[in-house]
Design a protein around this nucleic acid. Sequence first.
DNA 1: AGTGCGGCCTGTCCGC
DNA 2: TGCGGACAGGCCGCAC
Length: 271
Amino acid sequence: MPELPEVETTRRGIEPHIINQTIKNIAVRQRSLRWPIPKQLEQKARNQKIESVERRGKYLLLRLHTGTIILHLGMSGSLRICTANTPAEKHDHVDFVFGNNKILRLRDPRRFGAVLWTTKDPEKHKLLSPLGPEPLEDSFNGKYLFEHSRKRTASIKSLIMNSHIVVGVGNIYACESLYIAGINPKRKSGSLSLARCEKLVSAIKHVLAESIEQGGTTLRDFIRENGEPGYFAQKLFVYGRAGEPCSNCGKPIKQIKQQQRSTFYCARCQK
DNA sequence: AGTGCGGCCTGTCCGC
DNA sequence: TGCGGACAGGCCGCAC
């Protein structure tokens, strides 16, 4: 479910409630997520203070003095701030209970998400170390994308969704960025000119930044830490709009499959 | 090394 | 109503 804007919206939402707060208890109701929640997590993190709430790609990092809790929301995960009065529901797998009586509660029906623990620099963790640059930072630019797309035969859509190239771009924002840049999602990565790489990078930055401003995209079940939806869905040009007229040329938006994922695009405007 | 699939899960929706 | 199948904001770990 969540792409970078949804994860960043979540990060901003939870940070003020838990920063500098001490974890009094961790209640794990379901340990079997994408990987099992490590047994030592509760003991290692208990009575530790949250020193920072950071994001790297779609991972959230809760830094403690002795280590870091790594969270990933997978396809269906969400985090909410609540209190002990709020009864845990079916898919509420983990509660982090704080000294201020607030609870950070992880819900994840499909259990593609993860809760991990590392004592190293989290950037050196095996899941984080191969990640590409943050899309909103200057190191992700047209020249970078151009150089990393040379001689590649994979479609440009799969390239920008590859977290080893750039993090945070999921299925919705890949479709939207390619539409804004006027690039056909099926185009081979290696065939893009430098100018078109620059255009695509600008589109990615624009779409992600605007979605963060709107609190992310809620299609069905994404919720913020306070239970509110995000409002970017009303600004989507192509995602989920198969058959609707292209807002530029009026031709119906096409839906195809790439890498077993739906792609939405305009065959006239995207070449 | 790069590419493309299978698989992990549950919930929802659609057609019969 | 019930049932089967397709589909859903991700991404690792394999084969080739």
